[in-house]
Design a protein around this nucleic acid. Structure first.
Lengths: 163, 163
DNA sequence: TATTGTTATACTCTATAACTATA
DNA sequence: TATAGTTATAGAGTATAACAATA
């Protein structure tokens, strides 16, 4: 939500450009997946469940950096849409093991198509070499800033003090 | 808020990295300016008013792509903090001309320091040449995607159909 | 009648805290 | 007593629509 702070005549701040282009990419992605009936935050959860079926809600909350009650709401939505199933764990009946339904698997498959189209849309201005260059620069920043690979900060509980 | 959709073993999608790193940069910026008592959305407004003192709320709403009632709320906040003044236009008494107060000017000056520190923080992984490279790639994307220079999409009224 | 700004209202997202059931 | 999940609640952000003043 920041707007550029650079004095006129000087190049735009790189940090601002990152935030601007990143927000744009996120908004376009939301539009695209919205047509599949899901939100971007749903996609992250689906993907984590697909990668490790049977995961508990607590473990998702921990990895995403959100409060457990939020995972309840997110999983509620996915269950209502028939994409995810909660199964009581037989070993510890407090736990819910999360699994993708068949429909959930189908949505994840469609997501690959959507993701590729999105990628092409956003990077339309760049040739193959430039895309790789950009990815490398972003990876370097992500690593130095301690961003967990594949985990979007949009989930993260704001750690900033209230204003 | 999206999470990566790339199959494991393949490079992270560039679009996802953009969204991830961009959201991180925005969050860090929010933390920093929060210490000055303002939100990132305030900064954008302050900057636009500083650049063209006397602007109307309608013109801000138009440029940011938000509904006029939202500008009311944003300006309310800035006025409450003593950073901005509304003055009835003598030429058309329906208008409010917006002006920075002295305090508002001071905050904008501090913002330059904060912005530079933020820039250094986010780009710490890159040397000077890499920063210029990154900025050039991002500018190319921004231009091709029709992003208005200096206007953050975070303001923009979502044009996506409701889910 | 059209335009600027405002208010009233509602909806979404997300956190906190209290609660239930299991361990 | 501790843990997984849930519910109840509250606050922030933002849109829509009706409204008042002015043109």
């Amino acid at each position: 939500m920041s707007t550029d702070f650079a004095p006129p005549g000087r190049p735009r701040g790189t940090a601002f450009l990152l935030s601007q282009v990143g927000a744009h990419a996120a908004a376009r992605f939301a539009e695209r997946v919205g047509e599949l009936g899901v939100a971007p935050s749903d996609i992250g959860l689906l993907r984590m469940i697909a990668l490790q079926p049977g995961r508990s809600q607590q473990s998702l909350a921990g990895e995403l950096g959100v409060v457990p009650s939020r995972v309840v709401a997110l999983v509620d939505g996915l269950e209502r849409k028939g994409l995810v199933e909660r199964r009581r764990s037989p070993r510890d009946r407090r736990n819910h093991e999360l699994h993708l339904t068949e429909e959930g698997g189908r949505v994840m498959a469609e997501m690959r198509t959507v993701g590729a189209a999105h990628e092409d849309d956003i990077c339309a201005a760049l040739d193959e070499e430039q895309r790789n260059q950009l990815a490398a620069l972003l990876e370097a920043i992500a690593a130095q800033q301690n961003l967990a690979p594949g985990v979007h900060p949009g989930y993260r509980q704001s750690s900033a003090p209230p204003r």
